[in-house]
Simulated scan of single mutants.
Amino acid sequence: MPEHGLDWLSRAELMSYEEMLRVSSLLVKMGIQKIRITGGEPFVRKDIMQLLTALSKLDGLDELSITTNGVLTAPFIPELKKIGVRSVNLSLDTLDSGRFFSITRRDEFDMVMNTLHQLLKQDIEVKINAVVMAGQNTQDIIPMVELTKELPVSVRFIEEMPFNGDSHVYTGLPWDHLRILEEIRDGFPGIQKLIDPAHSTSYNYHVPGHKGDVGIIAAYSRTFCGTCNRIRITPQGTLKNCLYDDGVLNIRDVMRKGITNEELEKVLTNAFNHRPQDGYEAERSRIEKTGVHESMATIGG
Rank of each mutant, 00 (worst) to 15 (best):
P2S: 09
G5V: 12
W8K: 06
W8D: 08
R11N: 13
Y17T: 05
E18Y: 05
E19Y: 02
E19K: 10
M20A: 11
S24G: 05
V28R: 03
V28W: 01
I32L: 02
Q33R: 15
I37M: 03
T38N: 13
G40V: 08
D47H: 08
I48R: 12
I48D: 09
L52H: 00
L58F: 06
I66F: 02
T68P: 05
A74S: 15
P75F: 04
P75M: 09
F76T: 10
I77P: 02
E79F: 03
V85T: 02
N89Q: 07
L92G: 01
L95V: 11
G98M: 12
R99I: 02
I103F: 03
R105D: 02
D107Q: 13
D107A: 02
M111H: 07
N114L: 06
L116P: 04
H117M: 02
Q118N: 05
Q118Y: 13
L119R: 07
L120S: 05
K121S: 11
K127V: 00
M133V: 09
A134C: 01
T138H: 10
D140N: 10
D140W: 13
K149G: 08
E150M: 07
I158M: 07
F163G: 01
D166T: 04
S167V: 07
H168R: 15
G172C: 00
P174T: 11
W175Y: 06
W175H: 07
D176S: 02
D176L: 03
H177Q: 09
D186F: 04
D186R: 14
F188Y: 15
G190K: 13
G190C: 03
I191N: 05
A198M: 09
A198W: 04
T201H: 12
S202Y: 10
H206W: 14
P208K: 14
K211V: 06
K211N: 15
D213T: 07
D213A: 07
G215L: 08
R222E: 04
F224A: 07
C228N: 08
N229H: 12
R230K: 09
I231T: 06
T234F: 06
P235K: 12
Q236L: 04
Q236A: 01
T238D: 13
C242V: 05
L243R: 12
M255W: 07
G258V: 09
G258L: 08
I259V: 09
E262N: 10
K266W: 05
H274T: 06
Q277V: 08
D278T: 00
D278I: 00
G279M: 03
Y280K: 13
S285K: 14
R286E: 14
E288P: 01
G291F: 01
V292S: 10
V292G: 00
E294A: 09
M296A: 04
A297T: 13
T298H: 03
T298P: 00
G301M: 06
